[in-house]
Design a protein around this nucleic acid. Structure first.
Lengths: 152, 152
DNA sequence: TTCAAGTCTGCCACCATTGGAGGGTCAAGT
DNA sequence: ACTTGACCCTCCAATGGTGGCAGACTTGAA
């Protein structure tokens, strides 16, 4: 027992293949700030500490951080990631449950894309008709000001 | 003098074509909350008040709110709208200045769309390969967990 | 011993919007 | 007059994900 306590020295931990927060961050691609944040919001379980109160990460923790990082890169919200992590750790999950989360996110992404595309279409139309010169006449401002085609 | 002071009674104001915040909100499509907010951040100049401290809006104010609403609908950030409003009110502006703001926003939108589209592509690939049945085997989780095609 | 780099906690800022609490006001109806 | 309900007021908090800073401590190496 005493010997396992001595384990929690920073240098010993590193020697044994454990990582401090900086190394865990680098290894996972998550910023140090966000590593702490994910722990604070319970996405990552509370990790061990050295005697000096430094966080100590296992390769397993790093793996989880990589999982989170990849999910964020795919645009999953933290609440989705929470669900995905639970499914990941649950060996008797159904792939249907995972697909449902991914599918909902996919729909949300497509909705947002469509929304932005309609903005782009409107803006392109306006900027196309705008001379972009010294003169003040500007269809963009006219549209914003509510000037709906005077001819109509 | 005394007569003009009497102007700031709620009923009088309405009678004279002015609007209280609720009517201004409805007329512009901006929520009451946000009308106050836009004033607080200086997007809309401070409006007059009745003796009871109710805000009083002119049709001109409503027009500005409509401008803001339309710009938000097109995805412009508040700081952009601030610039656009200034250009709108400056009769000697150049259309080039307006076009520059719109163009930058357009590029930003297109950048975000591309980013999300790459997320969609990745997710579609994963969900396409996921059975979505009772079994636990799931390419989506495998990807998140970092399983980069074992064969490679 | 000293110094830089790393870590700790905690708080603030961003962006746009919504919600609530706790109170005042207005215009009806009784 | 009095009540009621729909307004309005101000102030504060929270959202989500991240960055930044301050003040204090630890580490490891020169």
């Amino acid at each position: 027992m005493g010997k396992t306590d001595a384990f929690l020295e920073h240098a010993d931990a590193i020697e044994r293949g454990l990582l401090d927060i900086g190394r865990a961050a680098k290894a996972s691609g998550v910023s140090v700030k966000m590593v702490r944040h994910y722990e604070a919001i319970g996405l990552l379980k509370k990790v061990a500490r050295t005697y000096a109160n430094y966080r100590v990460y296992t390769m397993n923790d790093v793996h989880t951080l990589q999982f989170i990082k990849r999910a964020r890169t795919l645009g999953f919200a933290v609440k989705d990631i929470r669900a995905l992590l639970a499914l990941w750790q649950n060996k008797s999950r159904s792939s249907a449950a995972v697909k449902k989360v991914a599918g909902a996110h996919l729909e949300e992404l497509e909705r947002k894309i469509a929304e932005m595309q309609s903005m782009v279409a409107a803006l392109q139309h306006l900027t196309h008709n705008c001379q972009g010169d010294q003169r003040p006449d500007c269809p963009i401002l006219e549209d914003l000001a509510g000037a709906r085609k005077p001819g109509a």
